[in-house]
């Protein structure tokens, strides 16, 4: 990873904010839901950045903003050195070959009326690549994701969840992208299948030099594949750093709580077992987030400072942490 540090990032986002306008029936005015706020992140070629958080924390929105399925309301997205923040559909088109997405639900992301051959032909067709080239590449894609050649004439509903996810990955790889957003690619799958898909993704990364943004709500899955990890809470990144730093010496109470929920990883590695921390209270209403630090309503370290001031994302040992009282749980960081 040290060698990677010299390379220029393929993806660079600065202070991204993405919001939705929601009109509730009966309400007179549309309310604004800020799903992602002030997020800064960069991803280098060949690198995997894991993005974790509870559902509803804005991680999928961030993923979709990065590949410009959504337009951010503030901030900047740059891809391969090009500012694409406000690119329109036409301007994005050539870049679509470079960045792709794999969705969580492989039952919903494949057109049920198309055979696999048609599904895999779509990327070529959309980008005006000749049928001759496509029909040469489609079988290659299939073997890349380790599906039998006779899959081509079958419909999505004839496959299992894991096989469908392989099809979705094959489609994402068709145009030879350099960057993939993996939006919870394994959370809809059985645990045994999850490992197969994760291995496949790792093999593909090595083989094709892909960069991944790996989105998940499950920290253990992220831990298996990521070089760096970013933890999101209510639209903001609360901790970000190298995988080992985040996993071995988490600084933000939220990260600590998430890690404590993973069964036995540390125990198996012969380290001291962490005490399990159970977060009390629900995720606050994102339409009306708490003042100051957003995590304070569920935090055991919080005091008046956390109510009054929002903590900035600042360097703490190897990571960036947004907390007034960072530090491992029993280090007594609180003065």
């Amino acid at each position: 990873m040290k060698t990677d540090a010299a390379r220029k990032p393929i993806l660079d986002i600065r202070d991204i904010t993405t919001s939705y306008h929601i009109r509730r029936s009966g309400a007179q005015k549309a309310t604004t839901l800020v799903a992602v706020e002030d997020v800064t992140l960069s991803i280098k070629p060949g690198e995997t950045v894991g993005l974790v958080g509870e559902s509803g924390c804005g991680k999928s929105t961030l993923g979709r903003t990065i590949i410009r399925l959504l337009e951010p309301s503030a901030g900047m997205v740059s891809f391969a050195g090009q500012d694409i923040t406000h690119f329109n559909h036409q301007e994005m088109r050539p870049l679509r070959q470079e960045m792709q997405i794999v969705f969580q639900d492989p039952y919903a992301s494949l057109n049920p009326r198309f055979r696999v051959r048609q599904i895999l032909y779509e990327p070529f067709r959309i980008h005006g690549i000749s049928k001759a080239v496509a029909s040469q590449k489609i079988p290659e894609l299939l073997s890349l994701v380790q599906l039998p050649p006779d899959s081509l004439r079958r419909f999505p509903h004839e496959f299992s969840g894991g096989q469908r996810q392989r099809i979705a990955i094959a489609r994402a790889l068709a145009l030879e992208p350099s960057f993939l957003v993996l939006d919870e690619p394994v959370s809809a799958l059985d645990v045994s299948i999850q490992a197969q898909i994760l291995n496949l993704l790792e093999d593909l990364q090595t083989e094709l030099g892909l960069a991944y943004l790996f989105i998940a709500h499950d920290l253990s899955v992220v831990g298996q594949v990521s070089d760096r990890v970013a933890v999101m809470y209510l639209g903001r990144i609360v901790e970000e750093g190298p995988r080992d730093a985040v996993f071995n010496s988490p600084q933000h109470p939220y990260t600590i709580a998430l890690l404590s929920a993973i069964p036995d990883i540390s125990a198996a590695q012969g380290q001291q077992t962490r005490e399990r921390i159970i977060l009390t209270g629900d995720l606050p209403n994102p339409l009306d987030p708490p003042s100051g630090c957003r995590f304070r309503t569920r935090c055991w370290r919080g005091d008046q400072l956390c109510v009054d001031q929002e903590p900035p994302l600042a360097p703490v040992s190897d990571s960036l942490v947004a907390c007034h009282y960072p530090g491992p749980e029993d280090s007594g960081a609180r003065s």
């Binding site: 979709r64 590949i67 399925l69 559909h89 994005m92 088109r93 679509r96 070959q97 792709q100 997405i101 969705f103 969580q104 639900d105 919903a108 992301s109 494949l110 057109n111 049920p112 009326r113 198309f114 779509e122 990327p123 959309i126 980008h127 979705a168 489609r171 145009l175």
Partner: peptide
């Protein structure tokens, strides 16, 4: 709202393409 439509957008498909090639076959 289906993800296969979003997937098509991510591939760079135009609105016309999505309506014609992705929506319509599911309406036949």
């Amino acid at each position: 709202e289906s993800e296969f439509i979003t997937a098509g957008r991510a591939l760079g498909a135009s609105h016309v393409y999505l309506m014609q090639r992705s929506l319509l076959p599911n309406l036949t």
